[in-house]
Nucleic acid binder design. Structure first.
Length: 726
DNA sequence: ACGGCTCACACT
DNA sequence: TAGTGTGAG
C-alpha cells in the first residue's frame, strides 16, 4: 500500500551529478587508444612538464595528483599519458571541455530542473519526476530493477558487508513499508541510474551521482563512490553521516570559514557545530552565514536547484608568472587582443546558439610593483558596458587597464604610459562578460504584435508635461544601437588616451549591437495570441482610430525623416537601437557602434515619429514632439560627447540621457523600425502585453530601466506608437 | 618561479 | 553600481 504523502511535505529529491575526471574522459573519447591507460591532462608543457588539471583513475592509483607538475607525475608513474590542453591564441582553450559539458547537460536536463554547477557538474531537482513515478510505476510494483540502480550505494544499508549487496539494494528500493521519503528517494535512484546510462550512451562519458533530499547532501554523496557509481542518502542516516564528517569537507567550508570554525570554535566535524546556538553563530559570522551554518549542521539546506543550463558569465584570462610578467603597455595590449578575441568568439557563439547577449565587460589584472612599498595593493577591477566585436572589447579592456593602472600606481604614476616600464609588473590578465540576458524573442514577437496594434488602434492619450520633465531628468545613460556591421567601422586609433578623466567616463557608453539573425527564429506561431490581445485591448481602450494606413505608408525615406525633423540629430536623445540582421554568423559581424559614429556614417536613427503622421493636425503629436525638443542640458552634454570622442575614450557618453529602444523587423535597410525611449515606457504599459512578451521585454529592459512605479494611466499605443488621434 | 582558468555569489 | 573577496573544481 502506498504511504500517504505527508501533509506539509516539502520533501525534495535532489541529485548531484559529477563527471569523472572529465577532461581526461574528453581526451580519451577523442583518442580511444588512451582508454585504460593512466592518463592526465596538462596545460603548458614548457615548465616542469606543465600543470596537471585532471587525472584519470588509472593514474591516481600511482599516486598522481592534480596540481602536480607533469615531471612529478612522470616520476611516480613513468608510463603516464600526458595530454595537453588545446592551446589557442597563446593560451589554454577549454572550449572542447565546455562543449562536452553541454552535451551532458543536454541529456541530464530532460528529467527535471537542472542547474549547471560547473563545467562538469549539475544539480537536478527530480522531485516531480520521482513523485510521478511513485504514483504511476512505484518500484515495489516493478518486476525488474535495472542493474545500474542495484549497484547504488545506499547509506545506512549494510550492503557492503553482505555477500549479495545488490539484493540488499533491491530490497531497499522495493520495500513496501518504507517511509514516504525513502520511497521517493528510491524513485530518484532509479531515475538517476537511468539518466547516467543515458549519458553514457549518448556521450560515452561516465559520471557519478548522489541522490538525497537537498543539494548539500547530494553533493556530499556524489563524491563518496567514484567513478561511475551513485550513492543515496536516506534521511535516517543523515545525522550519522554528518556527525563525524570533517567540517572542511562541506562545500563552502573548505576555505577560511572552515578554518575559522576549526581554530576559533574548535569545530572539527559537522557534528561539533550542533553545540552552538544559532545566535552565537550569527554573532560571529553574520546573520546569513550563521543561520546557514546552524542549518547545515542539521543536514538541511534550503537552497533551490536553479534552472540554469548556461553560464552567467564568460571569461578569458591568462597568468604570466615569474619572468613572464608583463611590463609594457604594448605587451598588455597584445595579450588583451588574444583574450578579447577568445571572449568575443564565445559571446558570438552564445548569441548564435542561445540568443543571449552580455552587457558588462570587466577587466581584471594582478600586479606587483618593484618599489615594494604598498606591495600588497591590489590591481583594481574595472568594468564598463560591453560592446560586441573583438576589437571593441580589446579597446575597452585596454582603457580599463589604463584606468586601473592609474589607480594602482596612485601617486607613483610617473611616465606610466611609456613603453619603458616603470616598476610595475602584470602577472595576470582577464576579461569577462557578464549580465548576460536572453534576447527577447519578443523583439520579434513584439514587433509582430505591434503590427497588429498598428492596424487596429490608436490612442488619444498623450503624455503630460510633468511626464516630460520627469523624462528629461531621468538619468539613464546607456545607448544601445544596432547597425549593419558592414557600415560600422571604428576608425579610432590606438593612440594613448588621456588618463586623467577616464574614470569619470567609465561605465557610461553608447554602443550598437548587430544582433545578426537572432530575431529570425520566432515564427508565425504567435499570430493567435496577438489577435487575442488585440481584442482585449480594443475592449479596454475606447477611443481609437486605425493605424493601418500609417503602417502601410511607413516606408519613410531618409528625406522624409529629415523633413519631419525627428531624426536623432535633432532630438539630441540617445537611443537604444535593436535591429535584426540576416548576415552570417561570424563574430566580426557583431558590432557596437557609438551613436556619434553612426551619425558620421550617415546612418539614420529614426524615431517613432518617422512613421508617417497625418498632417500634424493633432495636438497629440505636438505633445509627443516635446519629448524630442532638445533641451539645453542635453545639448551641452552632447558637446561633452563630442569632446570625449576626440579623446579616443571608449565611446563614452555622460550621464543624464534617457534611452530609446528601437525595434526593426526587416533589418536596417528599408526595414520597419520603431524607436522607444526606454525611460518613457511605463510599467503599466508593459503589463498590458501578453505574459510571454512581458517576460522577454523585461529581460531586455531591466538593465536599462530603473524601477519606475509611477502609473501614468498610459496605454500601449501612447508609448509605442506615434499618435494621430483626435 | 607557479595550480591555471573558469565560474558563482555574498558583501559593501 | 561597481568592485572586492571567497570558494569551487
Amino acid at each position: 500500500m502506498p504511504v500517504a504523502k505527508p501533509e506539509s511535505s516539502d520533501v525534495r529529491i535532489i541529485a548531484h551529478v559529477d563527471m569523472d575526471c572529465f577532461y581526461v574522459q574528453v581526451e580519451q573519447r577523442k583518442q580511444p587508444c588512451l582508454r585504460g591507460l593512466p592518463t592526465a591532462v596538462v596545460q603548458y608543457n614548457s615548465w616542469k612538464g606543465g600543470g596537471l588539471i585532471a587525472v584519470g583513475y588509472e593514474a591516481r592509483k600511482f599516486g598522481v595528483k592534480r596540481s602536480m607538475r607533469g615531471d612529478e607525475a612522470k616520476k611516480v608513474c613513468p608510463q603516464i599519458q600526458l595530454i595537453q590542453v588545446p592551446v589557442a591564441r597563446g593560451k589554454a582553450d577549454l572550449k572542447t571541455y565546455r562543449d562536452a559539458g553541454s552535451e551532458v547537460v543536454r541529456v541530464l536536463s530532460k528529467k527535471g530542473r537542472c542547474e549547471r554547477a560547473s563545467i562538469d557538474e549539475v544539480y537536478l531537482d527530480l522531485t516531480d519526476a520521482a513523485e510521478a513515478m511513485l504514483v504511476e510505476t512505484p518500484p515495489e510494483s516493478m518486476e525488474a530493477i535495472d542493474v545500474e540502480a542495484l549497484k547504488s550505494h545506499v547509506l545506512g544499508l549494510d550492503q557492503e558487508e553482505q555477500s549479495d549487496g545488490q539484493e540488499c539494494v533491491r530490497k531497499w528500493l522495493t520495500k513496501c513499508d518504507s517511509d514516504y521519503r525513502d520511497k521517493l528517494l528510491a524513485c530518484g535512484t532509479l531515475i538517476v541510474a537511468e539518466l547516467r546510462m543515458q549519458v553514457l550512451k549518448e556521450t560515452e562519458f561516465t559520471c557519478s551521482a548522489g541522490i538525497a533530499h537537498n543539494k548539500m547532501l547530494a553533493k556530499l554523496a556524489s563524491a563518496m563512490n567514484k567513478p561511475a557509481q551513485q550513492t543515496v542518502v536516506p534521511l535516517s542516516c543523515v545525522k550519522g553521516l554528518l556527525d563525524s564528517l570533517p567540517i572542511k569537507k562541506m562545500k563552502q567550508l573548505g576555505g577560511k570559514l572552515g578554518s575559522s570554525l576549526e581554530s576559533d570554535l574548535g569545530v572539527n566535524t559537522v557534528g561539533d557545530l550542533l553545540k552552538f546556538p544559532e545566535q552565537k553563530l550569527q554573532e560571529r559570522y553574520g546573520i546569513n552565514t550563521g543561520t546557514w551554518l546552524w542549518n547545515i549542521a542539521r543536514g538541511s539546506s534550503g537552497e533551490e536547484v536553479q534552472c540554469r543550463l548556461l553560464p552567467n558569465s564568460h571569461g578569458s584570462g591568462k597568468s604570466f608568472p615569474g619572468p613572464q610578467a608583463l611590463r609594457t603597455i604594448a605587451s598588455v595590449q597584445h595579450w588583451l587582443t588574444e583574450l578579447s578575441e577568445e571572449l568575443s568568439e564565445r559571446l558570438s557563439s552564445d548569441l548564435d546558439q542561445n540568443r543571449r547577449m552580455a552587457h558588462t565587460l570587466t577587466f581584471h589584472a594582478t600586479a606587483y610593483r618593484l618599489s615594494d612599498s604598498d606591495s600588497h595593493k591590489k590591481f583594481p577591477s574595472k568594468s564598463c558596458p560591453l560592446r560586441y566585436g573583438a576589437a571593441k572589447i580589446q579597446e575597452d579592456a585596454l582603457n580599463l587597464f589604463k584606468a586601473g593602472l592609474r589607480d594602482y600606481l596612485g601617486s607613483y604614476r610617473a611616465n606610466i604610459l611609456g613603453d619603458s616600464n616603470n616598476g610595475w609588473r602584470i602577472t595576470s590578465l582577464s576579461v569577462s562578460a557578464s549580465k548576460i540576458m536572453t534576447i527577447p524573442s519578443g523583439m520579434c514577437s513584439i514587433t509582430k504584435y505591434l503590427h497588429v496594434q498598428h492596424s487596429s488602434c490608436t490612442s488619444s492619450e498623450q503624455p503630460q508635461d510633468n511626464d516630460i520633465q520627469e523624462t528629461a531628468l531621468h538619468s539613464g545613460c546607456t545607448n544601445y544601437s544596432v547597425m549593419d556591421s558592414n557600415e560600422a567601422h571604428d576608425e579610432r586609433t590606438g593612440e594613448e588616451m588621456k588618463i586623467e578623466d577616464e574614470h569619470d567616463r567609465l561605465g557610461c557608453t553608447d554602443y550598437s549591437v548587430d544582433l545578426c539573425e537572432a530575431f529570425d527564429k520566432s515564427t508565425g506561431e504567435e499570430k493567435e495570441e496577438k489577435a487575442t490581445h488585440r481584442c482585449n485591448l480594443d475592449e479596454e481602450e475606447g477611443e481609437r482610430g486605425s493605424w493601418k494606413d500609417e503602417v502601410m505608408d511607413r516606408s519613410c525615406s531618409s528625406k522624409e525623416l529629415e523633413k519631419d525633423g525627428i531624426v536623432l540629430e535633432t532630438t539630441q536623445l540617445p537611443v537604444v537601437t535593436v535591429s535584426k540582421f540576416c548576415s552570417g554568423s561570424n563574430e566580426s559581424e557583431f558590432q557596437i557602434i557609438p551613436i556619434e559614429e553612426q551619425k558620421s556614417k550617415n546612418t539614420r536613427i529614426t524615431s517613432p515619429l518617422c512613421m508617417k503622421r497625418n498632417k500634424s493636425k493633432d495636438k497629440g503629436t505636438a505633445s509627443i514632439l516635446r519629448f524630442f525638443k532638445p533641451d539645453l542640458s542635453s545639448a551641452s552634454r552632447n558637446q561633452e560627447v563630442a569632446e570625449s570622442m576626440q579623446d579616443n575614450s571608449p565611446s563614452a557618453v555622460p550621464d543624464g540621457h534617457s534611452s530609446e529602444l528601437r525595434l526593426s523587423d526587416h533589418g536596417a535597410q528599408g526595414g520597419e523600425i520603431w524607436n522607444y525611449k526606454v525611460d518613457e515606457i511605463d510599467i503599466s504599459v508593459i503589463e498590458e502585453l501578453p505574459p510571454e512578451i512581458q517576460k522577454e521585454l523585461w529581460s531586455w529592459l531591466r538593465p536599462h530601466k530603473r524601477s519606475n512605479t509611477a502609473n501614468r494611466g498610459s496605454t500601449i499605443a501612447r508609448y509605442f506608437l506615434p499618435s494621430k488621434s483626435s
